[in-house]
Design a protein around this nucleic acid. Structure first.
Lengths: 186, 186
DNA sequence: ACGATCGATGTCAGTGACTGACATGAACGG
DNA sequence: CCGTTCATGTCAGTCACTGACATCGATCGT
């Protein structure tokens, strides 16, 4: 028989998202999250570096980096980036309700927004590294990656909006076309 | 005679930058900063929302928003954004040593990087609003602003690098041209 | 001139995030 | 069967941050 209930990190993440949604992020103590997951406060901090990190455990970065690595040899940097955005869009499309709940918690708290931004920044750095791996030089690699993140952010905001039922991938592709138009001076 | 020494926020900011540079951000307590400025810990928190905020008191946002508002009527969104980046570059050029010290402290601490990112994000939001004020519609306004921030970030990193003695404004203009090339598929 | 008010500061006690040190006990390899 | 490992618990401590209340020159109205 197992000594402990399985998947402690998952239970903690679930309890945290629920409580953050019910009472708000600041009104929730780590002790409460741990109690709901049947664990001690100390164990929470063994699985997550801090109270915010529990909302950012995903694996989108690996997915997008892989998409860049797998892009066809002849693809321009911006096209490899577009493939990565497509991959992320597809992943999120499957978890739309989870994404919406999580985003509404983040939108309500500046500290969580900070964490989200640094995650996106790390993602941009990883994408730039993946581009360099393909032989793209700086600053083209960083600018391409940053452009991809900008497109992702704008598209995500439009997609998550309740009134908008279009697939993420469509919104993302449209947003990229619009960025191209903007930087072309139109 | 004045009841207190003048410019409490300025003294606190100076003491904080010095101490963060000497011992590192995490190894510095707010009590130490306040003591060096001849004030109480409580007073620190009356002037700055938290221990990080003391490094982010500048007025670059107003400057860049004004540059967008003042751009010629016929200017394309990306050109108004370019004018804003030029203005910021000129401001920072005059404070190069301060900017370098501050940046080396920020570079050493993820928490400070988070704060910097959310400041840049707020800046992007304000620039987008200034563009909308000029009649630019969404998502063009947001994408133009994000593109400007991406250029600013890349250019700043290259300019602050010790080996690089080129004026910020030159680096910034070159970076914008490179972003244009990237999104054009080159 | 003088009292009422204001505003920047100080003091103090409290909460909660996070950390380090040490203990526990089922599982697992040899 | 025994020693090690590993996920967890317990406990004490530090420090960021907050609310409540006190202080006392400066300032304003009369």
């Amino acid at each position: 028989m197992a000594r402990w209930e399985p998947d402690a990190p998952g239970r903690l993440a679930q309890a945290a998202l629920d409580l953050y949604g019910e009472r708000g992020f600041e009104q929730t103590t780590v002790a409460e999250i741990a109690a709901r997951a049947g664990l001690s406060e100390r164990t929470f901090f063994r699985h997550f570096a801090d109270k915010r990190e529990v909302l950012f455990a995903g694996s989108m970065q690996e997915l997008m980096v892989a998409a860049i690595a797998d892009a066809p040899d002849g693809a321009a940097p911006i096209d490899a980036v577009a493939a990565a955005v497509d991959a992320a869009a597809t992943l999120l499309q499957e978890r739309r309700e989870f994404a919406r709940r999580r985003q509404s918690v983040i939108a309500a708290n500046p500290g969580l927004q900070e964490r989200e931004l640094i995650k996106l920044s790390a993602l941009a750095g990883a994408m730039a590294a993946a581009l360099r791996q393909r032989g793209v030089s700086e600053p083209t690699a960083s600018l391409s990656a940053e452009a991809g993140i900008a497109v992702f952010k704008v598209a995500f905001e439009r997609w998550i909006d309740a009134a908008n039922q279009r697939p993420f991938i469509d919104v993302a592709r449209e947003s990229l076309d619009q960025l191209k138009a903007v930087t072309a001076g139109r």
